[in-house]
């Protein structure tokens, strides 16, 4: 019996160098779901120029990227969290407006920061001018969007029960289906049945973001463990090119830093 195991181990051991040689370079990228469309667009362009490089892209969120980078599971992370990342090298990358959205049939189109803070702080929030209760659709702790929203709009009253969802697509779906619900999304997840609210009278456009007028702007950074070498360094350099971010990002709703 034992000789079979030894034979199998010897065959595998002999084949290992050949197997490893035939594996292409594989880079793993993960991070903020708000910036995922931009990552996918830029990685697709990079793949076309470097056909021998395999790049796996997943979302997961900024917290996921930080945790997985520290575990060594991913090579490149995208984070829009303001907190520092110990032992990680960070590079500024892109900006995007965060939209506060409601269902189109709710009829609300604008809101002031003071009103949002008051709604989030109330134990029985109701949309002004209606008797409809506000349902807050939030993101989990560790999401960059959630951190930005809490800094700007204040924390939720602890007695409220928000719906907490891990994916932008689900947030969009739930808010669209529920008159009274509100959530925060990036521009690429906006649907026709959702209305992005004007905040303090400012419409969420790239022009207003560039001019510094729109208040809710998410800034993403590219992170790596140490100064990377080889293919990872080339990919990071391509991703952080301001010109490339501007060209790929504008149609999707992103700006260079």
């Amino acid at each position: 019996m034992a000789w079979r195991w030894l034979l199998a181990a010897a065959v595998l051991g002999g084949l290992a160098p050949w197997l490893l040689r035939s594996v292409p370079v594989r880079i793993r990228v993960a991070g903020s779901t708000a910036f995922l469309p931009l990552v996918l667009r830029m990685v697709a362009a990079y793949r076309r120029e470097h056909p021998g490089v395999e790049i796996d892209v997943t979302g997961g969120g900024s917290g996921f990227a930080l945790a997985q980078l520290q575990r060594g599971v991913v090579d490149v992370g995208v984070s829009d969290l303001p907190r520092a990342a110990p032992r990680l090298v960070t590079r500024p990358w892109a900006r995007t407006p965060v939209l506060m959205v409601v269902a189109r049939r709710l009829g609300v189109t604008a809101i002031r920061r003071s009103a949002i803070r008051s709604l989030r702080g109330s134990s029985r929030p109701v949309w002004p001018g209606t008797r409809r209760p506000v349902i807050f659709v939030e993101r989990p702790y560790g999401s960059g969007t959630q951190a930005l929203v809490e800094r700007w709009a204040g924390p939720l009253n602890p007695r409220l029960r928000p719906v907490i969802l891990g994916a932008n697509g689900l947030v969009a779906q739930v808010v669209a289906a529920t008159a009274g619900a509100t959530g925060f999304l990036d521009a690429s997840d906006l649907r026709a049945d959702l209305v992005p609210l004007r905040l303090d009278g400012v419409t969420p456009t790239l022009a207003n973001v560039a001019a510094g007028r729109y208040p809710l702007v998410l800034t993403a950074r590219i992170l790596t463990r140490a100064r990377p070498g080889g293919e990872v360094r080339r990919l990071v350099r391509a991703l952080t090119s301001t010109r490339a971010v501007a060209a790929a990002g504008r149609p999707l709703g992103y700006l260079p830093p």
């Binding site: 996921f64 702790y141 560790g142």
Partner: peptide
């Protein structure tokens, strides 16, 4: 677990 396992710092 599903929502937070990947997010927690090691």
């Amino acid at each position: 677990l599903v929502q937070q396992f990947g997010l927690a710092q090691p």
